[in-house]
Design a protein around this nucleic acid. Structure first.
Lengths: 336, 336
DNA sequence: CATGCTTGTGTGACCGGTAACAGTGTGGCT
DNA sequence: AGCCACACTGTTACCGGTCACACAAGCATG
């Protein structure tokens, strides 16, 4: 009739019940090979009976490893980052790692450094940085040298995973040119995001290579609002017949601006976006866009980082190959 | 010329340098009041000199608290959950807590139970559940009694934070009725999400109260695709002049289905969505919708949980008040 | 001047695992 | 039989903090 003690059972409790030493129990839970099957079964039975669960903090203290990954990202509520983080979390989980996320609102270097510091204090084993508008070199500068870190972005001083932000915009531009448009206008993303500038570069280079005029483009951010506001000026200009937007939100705002101005998509103006958000296929009209494989990006980050962690002595891995992006043709594009 | 030892400095190292005991150093870092300012300064100086950082694992082991919160959620890449999680993370961080996220893909109870188990093993101090399509009672059933948990959803056996999914749909429905529509059709969310069924109930009750006919509605999910597919049937029916969609993605698909069928929004059909995603104001046309305050929801979850954690002995807090949702009128609605 | 309380500090054990090393028993080999 | 290698298991210290408690000094009080 003794009440269950309020404290959770430990290694020693299991050992006592199974009639072995605590070390043997530890071995069983570490999957150490040098345990006889018979003993292992006895230990597991005892552990199950007591509902024993190893204490993560104690293990972390003893081993110096926490089985925790940190993710530093901006605007975690946006579709891109959110999808990547979801993929990271899933793969980390499957590999037995926990994931901590730090979402940063403002871009200041203090916040990056602060988030990294917090993760260090927490004792994460590795870090994945999704730097957003912090220039990658800048983000890297705040990294402690002793914490394995993978950067989602262009090649840098640490291992990186990179999405294709250059080739696909070129392809999109050439596609529009091939449809007979004299040139292609562009609505870029924020000038301080490398993703944005790469997309712009891909667009510009394709135009130059084709001998087409390179129109000016107005600066803005990733939002639909920005697409709408800049889009109104584009829509008012009868010379504009094709536009490549730096992401789908911008394209979406542009679509409305064009519609509002009385012109039609794709009859009067063709529009291409970037990302292929799930809604893109059901916009008015369904948006031709460049699909990014967010899940693959997240997965590669985790794989790279875990490979590094598995061999801490070894040289840090280089960079994974560029994850390709793919042009998806729908109904927002047509002949000039 | 001695090389810095590769091991990180500990409490004892700081103590030695400052000429005090390790316990005094511990007190300084716990902000224990019983330390003289002079000693405190000496300790802090020594700590700064060694770049000492307290080891989280050791602290967690000794105190039994990890300063970590767990969030269990479905479809973390969707705008709603992602926004809530971002808010949770921000507020937890400001209160000195880390946040771990488990994103679940499939709805099985095993995955809920599994995620909870993982968080227990990790030693989180508390849990926030965003159950999605798991019926709240079902989700609660898998919760260990000894882990403080807050549920985002309708009142249940644990403290809850609830968004308004009932009143605002009624308001939206009455608004459309007031515009002269004979009745309002509805595109519900998944039947197994309580958010969806509550919205449907709000719509239905408003219709009944107004003496309007209650049309059948086709089951579906939260996606734009589902809105489009179901929307085509609605668009083909000339009796349909007003539709309340269970979220903005559904509304977005519906918008395209209506446009494709040659009818116009809002001249021929009025559409109202739910959530007020950032893109809603720039759809074609800008969507009248119900705004949910995701940030407030996340914040309330954290506040409730932290209050509980601060007083573990005390009775668990009840539920926070219902966070209101607000009808935002744009251009997708008009007179019949 | 002894007594008591308050404030500040030090001592040792302890949290629950893991690492290193030291046994013990069994079998094969000469 | 005697020896050794090998497989398995136990002993002890240790990770880096915190806790409970003992202790020293300073000051007011009787």
């Amino acid at each position: 009739m003794t009440a269950t003690p309020p404290t959770r059972p430990g290694l020693r409790d299991v050992a006592r019940l199974a009639g072995v030493s605590h070390q043997t129990v530890s071995r069983v839970f570490k999957n150490h090979p040098m345990v006889s099957p018979k003993t292992r079964d006895r230990v597991l039975a005892a552990a199950a009976q007591l509902d024993f669960r190893p204490n993560a903090a104690a293990r972390a203290l003893a081993t110096g490893r926490s089985s925790t990954l940190g993710v530093v990202s901006f605007d975690t509520a946006l579709h891109g980052p959110a999808s990547i983080i979801a993929a990271i979390e899933r793969h980390a989980r499957e590999a037995g790692f926990f994931t901590g996320v730090a979402g940063l609102e403002s871009a200041g270097r203090d916040t990056v450094a602060g988030a990294v510091e917090r993760f260090r204090d927490q004792g994460v084993d590795g870090l994945i940085m999704i730097p957003g508008h912090v220039p990658p070199e800048e983000a890297v500068r705040h990294l402690p040298g002793d914490l394995p870190t993978v950067l989602l972005g262009p090649p840098a001083a640490v291992p990186t995973v990179e999405a294709d932000h250059y080739r696909a915009p070129g392809e999109a531009t050439r596609y529009l040119l091939g449809l007979g448009h004299r040139t292609v206008h562009h609505l870029p993303g924020p000038a301080d995001w490398s993703e944005a500038t790469e997309r712009t570069r891909g667009w510009r280079d394709a135009l130059v290579a084709a001998g087409a005029e390179v129109p000016d483009c107005a600066p803005g951010d990733w939002s639909a609002r920005s697409g709408y506001e800049r889009g109104r000026r584009l829509a008012a200009d009868p010379d504009v017949t094709a536009v490549f937007a730096a992401n789908d939100q911008i394209a979406l705002g542009l679509l409305w601006a064009i519609h509002e101005s009385g012109r039609r998509v794709p009859e009067d103006v063709s529009v291409i976006g970037f990302d292929d958000i799930p809604e893109a296929a059901f916009l008015t009209p369904p948006l031709t866009t460049v699909r990014q494989d967010f899940a693959a990006l997240g997965r590669h980050c985790v794989e790279l980082l875990l490979a590094w962690l598995a061999d801490p002595g070894g040289a840090p891995p280089g960079r994974a190959g560029v994850v390709p992006s793919e042009l998806v043709i729908r109904r927002s594009t047509g002949p000039a």
